[in-house]
Simulated assay, not measured.
Amino acid sequence: MSETVILGSLLYSHIIPPILAFIGVLLLCSGIMDRKMNYTLIGMALFFAAGILPFLILPAVLG
């Protein structure tokens, strides 16, 4: 049981947020340079989600 908690907490705290943030920054840059508001807004949402989601998910995972 504890290995599952450690893997889940590692996944949600150190693996998924940097991936979301990286994709968010790429979409932000692409949206701003191409003047596509959709990409810019999605990039902003992903970047902020990368910062906030660990605080929402980890308490549920760690119990």
Rank of each mutant, 00 (worst) to 15 (best):
R35P: 09
G63S: 08
K36Y: 10
R35M: 13
I32W: 14
L20T: 00
I6V: 09
L20I: 08
L26I: 07
N38C: 15
L28E: 11
P18I: 00
Y12K: 01
Y39M: 15
P54D: 02
V61M: 04
L28Q: 10
I42Y: 06
G51N: 09
A49T: 13
L56H: 06
L27F: 11
F22Y: 09
S13L: 09
F47I: 05
L62K: 11
S9T: 11
G51K: 02
H14T: 10
G43Y: 01
L53Q: 03
V61E: 00
I6T: 07
Y12R: 04
I32N: 15
I57Y: 01
L56C: 09
L58Y: 03
S9E: 06
V61R: 00
I19C: 07
R35N: 14
L41V: 12
A45L: 09
A45E: 05
L46E: 12
L58N: 12
T4Q: 07
V5H: 13
V5C: 09
V25N: 08
F48Q: 12
K36R: 13
C29T: 15
I15K: 01
G63Y: 04
T4H: 06
C29K: 13
L26R: 11
M33V: 15
V25F: 04
I15A: 07
D34Y: 14
T40G: 14
G8H: 00
A60I: 07
M33E: 14
L41G: 10
P54R: 00
I32T: 15
A50C: 12
A60T: 07
G31E: 03
L53E: 02
V25R: 03
L62T: 14
I16G: 00
I42R: 06
I57N: 02
L20A: 04
A49W: 07
S30C: 10
S30Q: 10
I23Y: 05
I57E: 03
N38A: 15
A21H: 03
C29A: 15
T40A: 14
L7M: 05
S9P: 07
P54W: 00
D34F: 06
A45M: 13
L56P: 02
I42Q: 08
T4D: 08
